[in-house]
Lab assay of single mutants.
Amino acid sequence: MQRVNMIMAESPGLITICLLGYLLSAECTVFLDHENANKILNRPKRYNSGKLEEFVQGNLERECMEEKCSFEEAREVFENTERTTEFWKQYVDGDQCESNPCLNGGSCKDDINSYECWCPFGFEGKNCELDVTCNIKNGRCEQFCKNSADNKVVCSCTEGYRLAENQKSCEPAVPFPCGRVSVSQTSKLTRAETVFPDVDYVNSTEAETILDNITQSTQSFNDFTRVVGGEDAKPGQFPWQVVLNGKVDAFCGGSIVNEKWIVTAAHCVETGVKITVVAGEHNIEETEHTEQKRNVIRIIPHHNYNAAINKYNHDIALLELDEPLVLNSYVTPICIADKEYTNIFLKFGSGYVSGWGRVFHKGRSALVLQYLRVPLVDRATCLRSTKFTIYNNMFCAGFHEGGRDSCQGDSGGPHVTEVEGTSFLTGIISWGEECAMKGKYGIYTKVSRYVNWIKEKTKLT
């Protein structure tokens, strides 16, 4: 034993070699072989497995989906700052455009905790909710729209109204504003409101030439003092309507412009014939205590009207009353817009006519005020429907199939267009061939041609 100890002390290297040989010859039971080890760690190889990531292109799944990435790591994937920024906006807080917040056709661009709407022409605001041009839906104005110097929408209202708090709607500024039905039992019968379409306001006024200088022999019209197929109006439903009495009662109609003036057809009036105007009328054979009678003290036909040349060209006249009318729910003026808007309103496509005229061709006159909704007829169809001249200051309205029309005794009465609950004068009943005849239409004086003249002559002093 002493000898062994001496050998170990003198030859430590020998001992180490012996131990190493023993270990190498022993069977290893701690580690699995290569094949079995792979069965336990069965993990798919990654895209760049075996390579240094710093030297390969980034992978979106590896960089940002398996674990949260930084902007720089995302930049490695896209290799483009702009594309990385677009991805980053949604990656950080989701897609803010998912709810489609942009209105009126706006395009949404996502941002971090926010979004941006790219608005089409005519709109602005956070969600493109603000109209900035009158060309689109009248700028959301209830009545009139004008573009300011910086191309912003400025709404306005006709006389007797003021802008509401929203700067879009119009509200009454006087007790009985024009064009409004205020009798409670008839307010439910107000005709369907007309909503502004998209309009090209630059070209809204037709490029028409008034044929002022045409000389033409007097034409022989049949029954051209021209509501057939209409309905009984309720008291106060058309408070701007008046009836004219002269040699015979209810020979023509008219509309209240203001307390002192009536507008009617020029062919209705004769110099030297006494005319009485009755406002607030409903049943011409009954006294309903809503009527107001006034005498006409002055007749002003349009300066281009000449019955000797043509009885229905420039067929418009103004009547001055001896005493002002007292405005109330049964006696209310009709609204008159400017030339541009009167023309736009007419193009809405349908209007209402009213009167006490004959209820059928050569038949009896109506006792109760009649009204009828009539569609506008395109000019080409209008011209083809008659052998008589249709001037540019006239328009056609009615039904091709016949059966409904204005008729004798309705002449001078109103053709009105309702705009968001307020009625505007767009025409004056003038003439036609018979009444409600198939293929024939009622012919009306186009008020847009005469609004400046009306307003100039009827100013209240």
Rank of each mutant, 00 (worst) to 15 (best):
L383P: 03
I7W: 13
V277A: 06
Q237K: 04
F123L: 04
S406G: 14
I256H: 00
V242C: 03
C407N: 04
D110A: 08
T85W: 05
V181F: 05
F348C: 06
R180G: 03
T458A: 06
L24T: 05
A308L: 11
I262K: 02
G402T: 08
F348Q: 08
C382G: 02
H267L: 02
K89L: 07
A265V: 03
E165T: 13
S25D: 05
I284K: 08
L318E: 00
E456N: 13
G106S: 03
G398K: 06
E288M: 06
K152M: 09
D249V: 07
Y371G: 14
N48L: 11
F196A: 14
V195P: 09
N127G: 02
G402Y: 13
Y22E: 03
K45Q: 15
V263I: 09
V154H: 07
F238Q: 04
G355Q: 13
P172W: 03
F123W: 09
V447K: 00
C18H: 04
I7N: 14
T215G: 11
T386V: 07
I454W: 00
D111L: 10
M8G: 13
E86Q: 15
C435Q: 03
D338W: 03
K440P: 07
T218M: 07
P333E: 02
F31W: 13
D232P: 12
N42V: 13
C134W: 02
Q370D: 03
L41Q: 15
A250G: 13
I112A: 08
W356D: 02
G272M: 08
H282A: 08
T287I: 13
K45N: 15
T422R: 03
R162V: 10
N283S: 08
K188R: 08
E401M: 12
G403R: 05
R162K: 08
E66M: 05
N295S: 13
C18L: 15
D232N: 12
V153K: 05
R62A: 04
F224S: 12
G402C: 07
G106F: 00
Q408A: 05
E54G: 15
D378I: 03
K446W: 01
Y91T: 04
K89N: 14
V269I: 13
Y47H: 14
T386F: 10
I40A: 15
R62G: 04
T190F: 07
R191L: 13
E61V: 15
S217K: 07
E27S: 14
R83M: 07
I454Y: 01
S350P: 12
Q96T: 04
T186F: 11
C141M: 00
C435N: 04
Q185R: 10
S99R: 05
A192S: 11
I262M: 01
E76Q: 15
V248T: 11
N151W: 09
S217H: 08
L376V: 07
K109N: 08
T426P: 00
Q241T: 13
P177C: 03
V296P: 03
V419T: 05
G421K: 11
E129A: 04
R140G: 08
T445G: 02
V257Y: 03
T332S: 11
D378L: 04
K457M: 14
T332L: 12
F348Y: 13
L376T: 07
N313Y: 11
A164E: 05
I344C: 04
M8I: 13
V359Q: 14
Q408R: 13
C396P: 02
G122R: 04
K347F: 04
N36I: 08
A337S: 03
E66H: 05
P175S: 10
F121D: 13
N203D: 06
T290W: 11
T215K: 09
N104H: 10
C335I: 00
I17A: 05
R298H: 05
C145R: 00
E171G: 05
T417D: 02
S220I: 12
L103A: 05
L60T: 13
L163V: 10
E420C: 07
D405I: 15
A9M: 07
K362T: 10
S217M: 11
C28V: 02
S114Q: 11
F55T: 15
F121I: 06
T29F: 09
S255Y: 02
K146A: 11
V359F: 13
T264G: 02
N283G: 07
E142W: 04
H415M: 04
H415D: 01
K457L: 10
L60M: 15
D131I: 10
K68P: 05
P414N: 10
H267D: 03
F144Q: 02
G230H: 12
G439M: 05
A173H: 09
Q216A: 14
T16Y: 11
D212C: 07
V296C: 03
V377H: 02
W240V: 00
N113H: 07
C155K: 01
P172L: 04
I454H: 01
L425K: 00
D150L: 08
D110P: 09
E193R: 07
K126V: 08
N59Q: 10
D223F: 10
T16I: 09
A173W: 06
F196I: 11
E53C: 04
S220R: 06
P324E: 07
Q237F: 11
C178V: 01
V195K: 09
E10M: 12
I390L: 14
S49W: 05
L41I: 14
V296W: 02
P375M: 14
K68R: 15
V153Q: 04
N80Q: 10
R162T: 11
L103W: 04
A307E: 07
K247C: 05
G21T: 15
Q96I: 05
E129G: 04
F395W: 02
L211E: 06
V368F: 06
W240S: 00
N313K: 10
G402V: 15
L211Q: 13
L318I: 04
K247F: 08
E129P: 02
G50F: 12
M437E: 12
I275F: 10
K68C: 04
I262H: 01
E401L: 14
S217G: 05
E54F: 07
G122N: 07
N42P: 14
H361Q: 05
P44T: 15
L41W: 13
K260P: 01
E171S: 07
A37S: 15
W88T: 15
R358G: 11
L14V: 11
G253M: 14
I297H: 05
R358I: 06
G125Q: 01
P101G: 02
E82I: 06
V77L: 08
K109P: 01
E76H: 15
T417V: 11
C69P: 04
N310H: 14
V183T: 09
T445N: 04
I275H: 05
S350K: 12
F55D: 09
I334A: 03
G94L: 09
T458E: 01
E323Y: 07
H34D: 10
G442H: 15
Q2E: 09
S148T: 13
A173L: 08
G272K: 09
S49L: 09
E434P: 06
E67M: 04
T16K: 08
H361E: 11
C155M: 01
P414A: 09
Y47C: 04
L321P: 00
E27W: 04
N452H: 14
E66R: 10
E171P: 03
V153L: 05
N306H: 09
R162S: 09
D410K: 14
C435S: 04
H34P: 11
F121H: 14
V154I: 11
G402P: 09
I309A: 12
S448G: 09
L19I: 11
K293W: 10
P44D: 14
Q408F: 14
E98Q: 09
N147A: 10
L32T: 11
V227H: 06
I344D: 13
E27Q: 14
D410L: 07
T194L: 06
K109M: 07
G179W: 01
G349M: 04
S354V: 11
E320G: 03
R449T: 12
G398T: 04
P414C: 09
C97I: 01
G413I: 09
T271W: 07
H314I: 01
T190D: 09
K247A: 13
N203E: 10
I390S: 11
E193S: 12
V277L: 03
E285Y: 07
F31T: 15
A37T: 15
K293S: 08
V227P: 10
I136W: 08
Q237R: 06
E10T: 09
V243F: 09
N151S: 08
P172F: 04
L23V: 10
N452V: 06
L367K: 14
C145G: 01
A317H: 01
K459H: 12
C268V: 01
F224R: 10
Q219K: 11
T209A: 11
G94P: 12
N222H: 05
E165M: 11
T271P: 12
A337Q: 01
V4F: 13
T225K: 11
Y352G: 04
T186E: 12
K457G: 06
A317R: 00
C145A: 02
R43E: 10
T287R: 06
F71V: 15
K234V: 12
D232M: 14
N313Q: 13
